[in-house]
Amino acid sequence: MSSILTHRLFWPVVMLLVLFAINLVAFPGFFVIEVKDGHLFGSLVDIVRNGAPTLIIAVGMTLVIATRGIDLSVGAICAISGAVACSILLGSPNPGSVGTVVTAVVVAVVISLVLGVWNGFLVAVFGVQPIIATLILMTAGRGVAMLITEGQILTVNSPPFKVIGSGFLFGIPVAVLIAALIFTAAAVLTRRTALGMLIESVGINPEASRQAGVRSRGLLFTVYTFSALCAAIAGLVLTSNQTAADANNTGLFIELDAILAVVIGGTSLAGGRYSLAGTLVGALVIQTLVTTVYTVGIPPIATMVFKAAVVTAVCLLQSPTTNAVIASWRKPIAARFRKATV
């Protein structure tokens, strides 16, 4: 019992369940998942599908944060990735062909990887503080996206491209499959190899890690590049979902949602131990929160306050101080119990 209570995912999971319960009361069909036109259809499906881009970015963000860093540029990279893909599709005589779409996706991802390497370069080689290094691309990146789209919203009509964000495979949204793939890949790559432990080590004590022979520079390059890759993919999902590249709005503030998901998931911004499972729960909490606003019918003016209240609650419940207080309430009871059994 106490091990469940002290588990770092306890409160985020409780919050998720509470949000589910609120939705169920407001909308009894909330948990209903039916098959419509050969694919899954229901509120829960929407939550995981709409939450997919945030989750994808949050996975990359988790690893960056574990190294004591932060990546603010992911939203801008989303916009660039979408803008590149859409401009290639629009420039092609045959935007509907799978080949064109594959080209567009590959080019968008490669350009984003270059941007990730740039971030890694600033942080790992020049030792620029991550928040500053990625701030550069966060602001300049939108400008780059604007140049690519020439300030217009680029609408594309390409059925294969649309599949990425709105399509279904075996009845499951493709966006969810992509997110699951990235999540699993990140988990396997970091936990089945030594990458995860080394990332944590660099995040906890960079100098000790260096003296132990850990190649922290290479690790930093890797996590920032991976984060950019995640952002590129999330940008493609977002762009495909709205069938248009919108340099101004695609991925706007998604870096903050991703950071929040990581923090709700129990990974400290001070770096070190991270939890991808926590990030998953965090991303789901954030997306469910959005849906709750709609189903409960919270007036748009009060939406921000509502979200802030929930997030504050989660963060307070997770704080070490709160947990210490809760532990001190429990202790007398446990002590009495112990005496009784001895």
């Binding site: 080394l198 944590e200 080590s201 132990a212 070190g272």
Partner: peptide, 20 residues
């Protein structure tokens, strides 16, 4: 400051240099 990685376990700390 330069030796232990305090948030990691004894096992991870012992294996760190070998793993690196």
């Amino acid at each position: 400051a330069e030796g232990i990685v305090d948030e990691l376990s004894i096992r991870d700390n012992i294996a760190l240099a070998l793993q690196a």
